[in-house]
């Protein structure tokens, strides 16, 4: 039964994305509350899925890569609602929806997706907190990446003077840079807390710690350099995208190492 909710949420994100793209293409409507409702429905379905899955496995449902990716998608949407505040009705949802759809589809294609959920031994409070907070940090990094992509699109349209409906509906570039910076900082703080939680959770293998630090350090550098105005907004937007790709790759490796520890 719980899988039904996951499929429903995946469908919601696909529909939300497709509708907005159609509306923008036709140039007849702006992204509206309708998108917000679709995103909200998708989020409710995701939450219910994770709740039911958590009940079955008896702990935070991040026990295999499939669950990790679903939890990550949930974090992205949660942060979209919490941090996205003023951009909720703009195209942020449109850009978030395809990312979440892709992550969830990828998750469902994994071999671990077909394994039946079974009750697991709790990894302990700190370990579960570490996993949940770290994944929420990845969610924030994903959202920073989305805002970065939006900046790059808007900047390109401005430079090329292509001022169509996508341009009209995207927020100002200054807002997008501020959003990228804010969400990335939130992700960095969460990731730091996750790391601290990891230390409390007990001895982790050096490879895992190194892998986590390899995500933490670049984001730290990007933020420090940004604060000291060392590079342009455009470069910052590109870095938010590249850093997320690196982080997502390392998430796969981290999950593999963690689950085999």
């Amino acid at each position: 039964m719980e899988r039904w909710f996951l499929n429903a949420s995946t469908l919601c994100f696909l529909v939300g994305f497709a509708y907005t793209m159609f509306a923008l293409g036709a140039g007849v409507a702006r992204p509206s509350r309708w998108n917000f409702l679709v995103m909200l429905t998708g989020f409710i379905c995701q939450t219910e899925y994770l709740h039911q899955r958590g009940e079955i496995v008896g702990r935070c449902p991040v026990t295999n890569l499939f669950e990790v990716l679903v939890f990550l998608s949930w974090s992205v949407v949660l942060l979209y609602f919490v941090v996205g505040g003023s951009y909720r009705l703009s195209l942020l949802g449109t850009f978030t929806a395809p990312l979440v759809f892709l992550i969830q589809t990828l998750a469902q294609l994994l071999p671990s997706a077909s394994l039946p959920a079974v009750r697991k031994v709790s990894a302990g409070f700190w370990a579960e907190l570490h996993a949940a907070v770290s994944l929420m940090a990845y969610g924030a990094f994903a959202l920073a990446c989305v805002a970065g992509v939006m900046f790059l699109v808007q900047e390109r349209l401005l430079k090329r003077r292509q001022l169509g409906s996508v341009f009209q509906n995207l927020p100002p570039i200054a807002t997008l840079v501020a959003a990228t910076q804010r969400v990335m900082l939130a992700g960095f703080i969460l990731f730091t807390l996750g790391l601290v939680g990891g230390f409390f959770a007990g001895s982790a293998r050096t490879a895992i710690v190194m892998m986590a630090v390899s995500v933490w350090l670049p984001y730290g550098f990007i933020l420090i350099l940004r604060q000291t105005h060392r590079y342009s907004s455009r470069r910052f937007a590109w870095l938010s995208v590249v850093a997320f790709i690196v982080a997502l790759t390392s998430l796969g490796a981290l999950s593999f190492l963690h689950l085999n520890q």
Partner: peptide, 8 residues
């Protein structure tokens, strides 16, 4: 309008 799309 363009200025607002750049600076908010």
């Amino acid at each position: 309008d363009l200025a607002e799309k750049i600076f908010g």
